[in-house]
Computed example of a mutant assay.
Amino acid sequence: MELREFSDGYGVLVAGWARDAHEVALLCGRVEYPFPEELTGSWRKVADDIRSYLLFDGDQAVGYGEVWLDDEEDEAELARIIVDPGVRGKGIGLELVRGLLGPALAAGYPEVFLRVRPENAVAIRTYQRVGFVDVPQALMDEWNAAQPVAYRWMRFAGE
């Protein structure tokens, strides 16, 4: 498995990995299916604080995720993580999250976080296996106050 920087030619492929409106919402917060067309043409905006990656198994892209860098908060966040449905259940998510931790930790921030929908049990188990733990409930409540949904916030504590 190899983590590579995302290139725009893969936007439609990755968007197609969301199999229904619920998976679109898990990925980008929009409840639309198929994946919103205006997002497939410009999958990611080029920004200095967002790094987008694809995980490859040989020549096949099998996972996508982002690392958001936040100088103001002095932290990194893993975001928009999705695995090709044809290879789910085979440990690809685990490899993808471990791969994304590389550039997140290399950025030099003292903390790495992620947010996940509480009902996404498969993702939560994956994050826990990699070394993520829940932030304290009071902090979760504070961070969720400005969010459209109540996320489960986790921080990397090490494997």
Rank of each mutant, 00 (worst) to 15 (best):
A123L: 08
L96C: 02
F6R: 01
L69K: 10
A138W: 03
G158N: 12
N144A: 10
E73M: 11
V24F: 00
Y151R: 06
F6D: 00
A104R: 07
P110D: 01
E37W: 07
G158H: 13
K45W: 11
D84G: 06
E73F: 07
D8V: 01
V116C: 15
D70E: 10
L78W: 03
L69F: 13
W143L: 15
G108V: 05
Y64C: 03
R51Y: 12
E23F: 01
G158L: 15
I92M: 08
A18N: 11
V149E: 14
P36R: 12
L27Y: 15
R155D: 09
F156M: 12
Q147L: 08
D20R: 04
E5F: 11
D71T: 06
A104H: 06
S42F: 08
L94P: 00
P34S: 13
L27W: 15
V97D: 02
R152A: 13
E23K: 01
V133I: 12
L94D: 05
D71S: 07
P148Y: 15
R129Y: 06
I81Y: 07
P103T: 05
R88P: 00
E111L: 11
D84M: 11
R4W: 12
G158A: 14
M1E: 04
D134S: 15
G16E: 10
E142K: 12
W17F: 06
Y151G: 08
T40S: 15
R4E: 00
K90Q: 12
V12P: 01
E23A: 07
V133D: 09
A18Y: 01
V83A: 11
